[in-house]
């Protein structure tokens, strides 16, 4: 690649304005163009427009009333007396709590599953498909399914608990049962994705490393800790990052399973943004919340790469 880049200008060193184009190599830009188009249309532009909206009191159906409020929508998030303060920070706390519930199992269980599925046994392709299958469902299907399983009046789980003579909690309307229900639904629904990424990474690890470790007398658990984990490190960082982001964006499961309850304790930030923007018609304030949330996620991601991504070979 570098050779071509070097040789090209020499060949075309003819004076003139048109020839300048030739020095500029189009190929890489053409390759990223398809993504760039969609990125601009569906990410960059909405993000920029969101930034713009967040400086106004904005209702998209009332162009006649759209006052510029500067940073007020952001300041409201830090002003104890504002309408948004209590609800927003409760939602932030709830989201943080869900991260603690969901990220460890989503990463650790996915890794264990991947190691299992990486083994040689009959029908492993079928199992790989089965574990990945729920990910193909929409959040609506997954959440409604689990609502039926967990709901307290005649739900599947309570039905069996009752037959066993065990207590039957109100899964979706008491704490911490509601988080447990949402976490289980989320793990069932999304763990396939993380598993597949881990699986791909596991298959990249050269078997010679395991052979060498085995010759040195390492057992299966030592092989796991001293070969698998270090080799997986970059992928691990990546998976933790996307899981953090996905979990921080939790919305569909509480929306459909608990309605944000009990007592707004499963009302997440995205849920709050939905209420603020869609139900209260306060798009400006909702945009400010989104931008603030995005800033936090970007910081978390950067920290994650900085702390865990060091010493990577790649």
């Amino acid at each position: 690649m570098t050779e071509i880049a070097k040789s090209q200008p020499e060949d075309s060193r003819i004076p003139g304005a048109v020839q300048r184009w030739q020095r500029f190599n189009m190929t890489p830009y053409l390759f990223i163009l398809p993504h760039l188009i969609f990125f601009s249309a569906f990410l960059a532009w909405p993000f920029a427009y969101g930034l713009y909206i967040s400086l106004f009191e904005f209702d998209f159906l009332r162009p006649e009333y759209r006052p510029f409020v500067g940073l007020e929508n952001y300041l409201n998030l830090f002003n104890r007396g504002s309408i948004q303060f209590d609800d927003f920070w409760r939602a932030m706390g709830n989201t943080g709590e869900f991260l603690l519930w969901s990220v460890p199992p989503l990463v650790i269980l996915a890794l264990l599953l991947a190691v299992l599925l990486n083994g040689r046994f009959r029908g492993r392709t079928i199992f790989r498909t089965i574990y990945f299958a729920p990910y193909a469902l929409s959040v609506t299907v997954a959440a409604v399914l689990w609502w039926w399983i967990f709901q307290s009046q005649g739900g599947l789980i309570n039905h069996y608990l009752e037959q066993l003579g065990w207590p039957t909690p109100n899964w979706l309307s008491s704490m911490p049962e509601a988080w447990i229900a949402i976490t289980i639904a989320t793990i069932w629904w999304t763990i396939g994705f993380n598993t597949v990424i881990f699986l791909a990474a596991l298959q990249e690890i050269p078997s010679s490393l395991y052979e060498a470790a085995a010759i040195d007398g390492a057992g299966p658990s030592q092989q796991f800790w001293y070969v698998t984990i270090p080799m997986l490190r970059p992928v691990l960082v990546f998976v933790i990052t996307i899981t953090l982001i996905a979990s921080a964006n939790l919305f569909g499961q509480p929306f459909l399973m608990t309605g944000g309850g009990p007592l707004q304790q499963t009302e997440t930030v995205i849920y709050r943004i939905y209420i603020e923007g869609i139900l209260r018609n306060q798009m400006g304030s909702a945009s400010a919340m989104s931008i603030f949330m995005a800033a936090i996620l970007i910081t978390l991601t950067a920290l994650n790469f900085k702390l865990f991504g060091q010493n990577t070979q790649r």
Binding site: Q151, S152, Q153, G154, S173, S174, T258, G261, P262
Partner: peptide, 16 residues
């Protein structure tokens, strides 16, 4: 009886 939550569980209790 002890009932709470969305989805009108109280109505189900009556129906049963």
């Amino acid at each position: 009886p002890e009932i709470s939550g969305g989805g009108d569980p109280e109505v189900n209790v009556f129906k049963q």
